[in-house]
Computed example of a mutant assay.
Amino acid sequence: MKPLKPKEQKVVDEFESARPGLGAIAENNIRNNDKTGWADIIADTPDDELVAGEGSASNSFMYKRIG
């Protein structure tokens, strides 16, 4: 398995520092670039934008309640 490029490794490290275990998921997505496009996106992103941040997302789906 070839080593990650420095920018790719930075992304893995940022995900891992945000939450342990996410680094492995990020690395998997980078290595499966043909399906995910992650390596291409990272290559096109300026270094100073490759940082972990905090945020939230709302769920846009509505579920029927059972019971």
Results as ranks from 00 to 15, higher is better:
Met1Tyr: 10
Met1Ile: 07
Pro3Val: 03
Leu4Tyr: 05
Lys5Cys: 03
Lys5Gln: 15
Pro6Lys: 01
Lys7Pro: 01
Lys7Tyr: 01
Lys7Asp: 08
Lys7His: 08
Gln9Tyr: 03
Lys10Trp: 03
Val11Glu: 05
Val11Trp: 09
Glu16Thr: 07
Ser17Tyr: 03
Ala18Lys: 13
Arg19Ser: 11
Pro20Asp: 13
Pro20Leu: 05
Gly21Cys: 05
Gly21Ile: 08
Leu22Phe: 13
Ile25Met: 15
Ile25Arg: 14
Ala26Asn: 06
Ala26Tyr: 02
Ala26Thr: 02
Glu27Asp: 11
Arg31Pro: 09
Arg31Tyr: 13
Arg31Asn: 08
Arg31Ser: 06
Asp34Tyr: 02
Asp34Lys: 11
Lys35Met: 07
Thr36Asp: 10
Gly37Thr: 05
Trp38Lys: 03
Trp38Gly: 03
Ala39Val: 01
Ala39Asn: 06
Asp40Tyr: 04
Asp40Gly: 14
Asp40Pro: 13
Ile41Pro: 11
Ile42Tyr: 01
Ala43Leu: 02
Ala43Gln: 13
Asp44Arg: 12
Asp47Lys: 09
Asp47Tyr: 01
Asp47Met: 04
Glu49Ala: 08
Glu49Tyr: 10
Val51Leu: 11
Val51Glu: 15
Ala52Asp: 01
Glu54Pro: 00
Ser56Tyr: 03
Ala57Phe: 03
Ala57Thr: 09
Ala57Gln: 13
Ser58Leu: 04
Asn59Lys: 00
Asn59His: 10
Ser60Thr: 00
Ser60Ala: 05
Ser60Asn: 13
Ser60Gln: 11
Ser60Val: 06
Phe61Ala: 15
Phe61Leu: 14
Tyr63Met: 07
Lys64Ile: 02
Gly67Ser: 10
Gly67Ala: 10
Gly67Trp: 01
